[in-house]
Design a binder for these strands. Structure first.
Lengths: 256, 256
DNA sequence: CCAATAGTGTCTCTTAGACATTATCAT
DNA sequence: ATGATAATGTCTAAGAGACACTATTGG
């Protein structure tokens, strides 16, 4: 598409109000069998001392950056991993939604574009910059967050739960090579439900392009016995057909 | 959530760059068996004379409005319907995504929050304001659009096709009361595929909360014979269980 | 009458899920 | 040996889809 660059005569800057745009990242990972989210403790007003999602203003004019680039930058700053690093390269990033209610930031009108990141187990973050602390926090222990970040986190969790059903993104929580039980643990952790091991195994292998067999088996890990499970890599499928529908969703009573 | 209003000392306005935020609306409706989108012809630079999605700057400071409110306002301005009107009340509106690549607007850095609207058949729009023309356009005849609006429209269509599968939003394209063949026509139009009438009928009625029988039948309409179909209203379900999966989706060849 | 369409019945194939079974490993 | 777990097999119920059939309307 070529930008028809007409003259800017007749263009009135007062047609619009200037707004600050931030990017916030909901970075999810699995540690020790529990779903964790990356949080930072704010070192400046507003909400000083409260926990919040990592994020910051988009570099809009000088060194103008795209929105996904801003999200990667924020994630890299908070985790201490460099953007070109291999660890960050395996992170799945997608836009979650945009939050712009008036008054959500007491300073001024701020529109926040939220991103959702699925990451394999990453090292502990390091504090620095304008945050006094940063930590992977179990989602079940997350306190009330600054701004409307509690709502953003809730939306992110719901999105993540749904994404596991019809996309292969559960593999984004695993290392490059993983076993079917590893994958099952991801589903059980995110959905908060136990899955039948045998049925899960057969179903995953029946979905074309979900996982590919490496031919090798896992070494003796922290398991308590049993045969060595086979190692798989993520397949090339972008969508799961048929989907792995999560159980226990009874039909809700008809609303208004 | 209570906003902890610390003092604003130490707050440096240069921490952020001012950005203009717009809201663009992809309004879809069905007219004469074809899917239509509401387009406007631009009356001002940039892209003067080109077709574009209806949209405009968010009122951010004076009369600060929420993002969905801005979308409703733009839709009302372009369709000539008042926001409190009953016709607009039946329109389904949801956030589609946010587009903020540098250079997408040649004037300055603009972030656009795109909304997707599903509407029943609405009257023809009226031109006015800063648009020289406005029209419902069949999506198969849409020309190249201004800015990145062609991409936004493509994303909207893909979202709409998916939404029909697992939500009852096809009813948002129908009048308040509709027949099962009406509903089937919506699916066939949006998906671009013919569906088996008998199987579709049975499936729709088998999903709890999708439609409710009014007990009445349609009057003699533009049909070419056959029994009077029954009239239904939209049910209370928010999700379809089981979903109406669209046919013809063979497993794609595994990508990279 | 005839063509078109609404709505229902029937059959087959696939899949989900409950459960059983066998094989392999750590302790 | 014993217990835990990977992986596979079996059975049943439910849903998708192909197809046939009846009933009811407009022309």
């Amino acid at each position: 598409m070529d930008a028809g660059r007409e003259e800017l005569a007749g263009y009135d800057p007062r047609d619009y109000d200037p707004v600050a745009v931030t990017v916030d990242v909901v970075a999810l990972t699995i540690r020790g069998g529990a779903l964790h989210v990356l949080l930072v403790r704010r070192g400046h007003p507003p909400y000083t001392g409260m926990w919040a999602l990592p994020g910051g203003f988009v570099h809009a004019v000088r060194d103008a950056e795209d929105l996904p680039a801003a999200a990667v930058r924020e994630l890299a700053e908070e985790t201490g991993l460099s953007a070109g690093d291999g660890a960050l390269h395996r992170v799945h990033l997608e836009q979650l939604g945009t939050y712009g209610a008036p008054g959500r930031d007491p300073r001024m009108r701020v529109i926040s574009v939220a991103y959702l990141a699925f990451a394999p187990a990453l090292p502990d973050p390091r504090a620095g910059g304008d945050v006094s602390d940063a930590a992977w926090t179990p989602v079940r222990e997350v306190p009330e967050l600054a701004f409307d970040h509690s709502r953003i986190l809730a939306d992110a969790l719901e999105r993540a739960r749904g994404k596991l059903e019809y996309t292969p993104l559960a593999t984004a929580f695993c290392a490059a090579e993983f076993t079917i039980p590893d994958l099952r643990a991801v589903y059980e952790t995110v959905w908060g439900e136990e899955l039948h091991a045998g049925n899960f195994h057969r179903k995953v292998l029946s979905v074309p392009g979900f996982v590919v067999d490496t031919g090798r088996t896992a070494g003796p890990g922290g398991r308590r016995g049993g045969p060595r499970p086979r190692l798989y890599r993520a397949g090339g499928a972008a969508l799961l057909h048929p989907a792995l529908l999560r159980p226990g969703r009874e039909e809700p009573p008809p609303g208004p």
